[in-house]
Amino acid sequence: MPAFILSRLLQAIPVLLVVGFIAYAMFAFVGDPVQIMLGQDYTEVQRQALIHDLGLDQPFFVQYAKFMWRAVQGEFGISYRLARPVSGLIAERLPATLELSVTATVLSLAVGLPMGVYTAVYRRSWLARGFMVFSLAGISLPTFLTGILLILCFSVGLGWLPSFGRGEVVHIGAWWTTGFLTLSGIKALILPAITLGLFQMTLIMRLVRAEMLEVLRTDYIKFARARGLTDRSIKFGHALRNTMVPVITIVGLQLGMIVAFSLVTETVFQWPGMGLLFIQSVGVADIPVMSAYLLLIAVVFVVINLVVDLLYYAVDPRLRIERSSAQAGR
């Protein structure tokens, strides 16, 4: 098991190097940071000094190696726009994005999974049909539109929930801030979380439904019926567990998507997270922030993939055997 985790982590290194390369390449090819930082009036001496300070006069691969080396240490340079260290900016924004993503994920799983099972098991009921229609809407509405509609309905129309921001936050430790502990924080979280989670929720529901229907047709379910096992055990034990195997992969990847693409939701709700930071940085070609964001998202995906693999390991005994026999050097 530790060997398995280690091999997975080693596999992640080339991935991160490549993503780092792309992130770094942006420095060379997107905009001219020197121009941006100097503004309108500058002398040639100032320009040369800044190029030297930023290390832009060195060969490309040296710059790349330095960039990666600093990145490993959590150093991503200084934001062109805000003239502050990128690592600090990210650390400030990270809790907001993570809280939003986790809430959206929990919401999409907690609602999507039971709905998927229900629509598969009671395929012909009216409620199941209603869920299917609803899921069609959820899967086809673009995120920004859902967000705007929710704002229109619950903020503008009913005035129940705030339309932007994170509400009051409480500081925990040196750099974590949470909105979970205040009423305004929780209220502010509801609409963005629904907006961000809706697509995933309907996707999970449809996926679970399709997989479950597939599993319910298999021979081992028929054989379980022929042995007289209870309906409950067949559907929620035998069938559901087999349904989870493919669902875990998709859900895992989707979680990465939630973190990576929270930027649309964050823009709509002016949520002070990394996505909003990224969008604002794109506008002024703030490359250090953009490249740090890119790398961070790559790390998120690597971690999620590792977790997915570990979950597989827990759910599917067939994988355990292949691995241990492979290790035995058969």
Binding site: T218, D219, Y220, K222, F223, A224, R225, A226, R227, G228, L229, T230, D231, H238, R241, N242, V245, V315, D316, P317, R318
Partner: peptide, 22 residues
């Protein structure tokens, strides 16, 4: 359901697919 397995058992064709793999 109470009859199946208890009074009438069943054996299927393909043992590779009739057992729950998990």
């Amino acid at each position: 359901r109470r009859i199946r397995g208890r009074r009438i058992g069943a054996i299927f064709q393909d043992p590779l697919t009739t057992l729950n793999p998990l």
